[in-house]
Design a protein around this nucleic acid. Sequence first.
DNA 1: CTCCTAAAAACTGTCGACAGTTCGGGGGGG
DNA 2: CCCCCCCGAACTGTCGACAGTTTTTAGGAG
Lengths: 229, 229
Amino acid sequence: MPALPSPKRSSPRRVVSRRKTLALVITEHLRQEIVTGVREPGSKISEPTIAAAHDVSRAPVRESLRQLEREGLVVFDAVGRSRVVQLTNDDVEDICGIRASLESTAAGHAATRFHAAIEQTLRSNVAEMEEATTLDEVSQLDLAFHAAIMEASGRRRLITAWRAIEPQLRLWLGTLQRLREAISADVLAATLAAHRDLIDVLASGDATAARKAVEVHIASWVCESGGSA
Amino acid sequence: MPALPSPKRSSPRRVVSRRKTLALVITEHLRQEIVTGVREPGSKISEPTIAAAHDVSRAPVRESLRQLEREGLVVFDAVGRSRVVQLTNDDVEDICGIRASLESTAAGHAATRFHAAIEQTLRSNVAEMEEATTLDEVSQLDLAFHAAIMEASGRRRLITAWRAIEPQLRLWLGTLQRLREAISADVLAATLAAHRDLIDVLASGDATAARKAVEVHIASWVCESGGSA
DNA sequence: CTCCTAAAAACTGTCGACAGTTCGGGGGGG
DNA sequence: CCCCCCCGAACTGTCGACAGTTTTTAGGAG
């Protein structure tokens, strides 16, 4: 073996496991830490520290941070320092507005190409939510429901745009959750009802009605979830 | 051969010029190549090749490509290969729809905080466009005009989202331009008139009217520019 | 006790290297 | 003449290193 400049590596050169880059693993981990509040908004993020924590080099960490920047969870300052984003009320308001626009547009498309598989997915999501007990579970399922509608639209660009803001929604939801622990039975029931209605509207194939329904649903949700303004 | 730590550097270690990373330079160059069509949609992009072309290592190139992915100009396949995006009609339609939504929302905000400096910027843009002679110039100024409105809204998130799709608009515009060489005097006049009207509406401070006006402006523009659907 | 300065510590941007994977072509078999 | 397998070329993901900066820390001066 050629005496390498630094023969101090212990582990046998990590294997690039098929379809699962280190950057991806780290991204998921960091995202989780951010949306759950383990990393507080505004706190600094250091590449070397994270690299050491995961026992990897800085390369995949850098890539992760850029990805998280794209997701709006991390911000870089002029000198390249990164920190966890601090969402302002305006930010949340904008995000919700964009989201409403994207989802209602997507719903319109989804209505015109609705089919059994999609309905199946949505209905089972509702069924799962009926069983959910923690606020966190409900949030997860709610997002999954909306994600399913986006997917159902089949519009690449809409989906991309939605994915770009979804993590920020999760961050905001996480922040809210940490304030109020319990689930309101009323809210849960209302959400379930609204989702069932949405499925029916989508199944009807009426694009215009679907757009409107989603817009209303999100608007009401924003209000009762603790309007941002 | 046991390569020594590497005492063979020839160039005097490129200086990290303040506030201008290599990645940024390369990003700009690649973006230019893509939106101008020098790099054809769907063509492969190789990191080593680009790195060699700019005489840099792959690190900044990788970062550039990720940035361009965020801008929607480059796509990565499952194995990490990158290519220039190929916009579909659906994509363009979605992009225009998102854009209209973002800009009209921004216009609403801009109307409520309109002031002299903004008006100055917008009016001088119109003045410049009156002097413009090439189709390319007009496009640039048109985009700058709309960018100015976004900035005028002062909404961080709206601006971020808009920046995320703007390059794709440029790509599409570039594609169109390559089809029709000349500028239609009618279209130019109409655009100028529309922009002047927009400034007036914004100056009036009527948010609702501003939103509507922008929406109409963009919709009509999409139609005459060669509607996607 | 506070404010300012200089050395130390910690970072980011970029580089060249290497291992494993994937793509492209050529040769052989059906 | 077409299809399949194997080999070499080209790539991507990741690593450790280093130079230039920025942020801290540790002292001193006032």
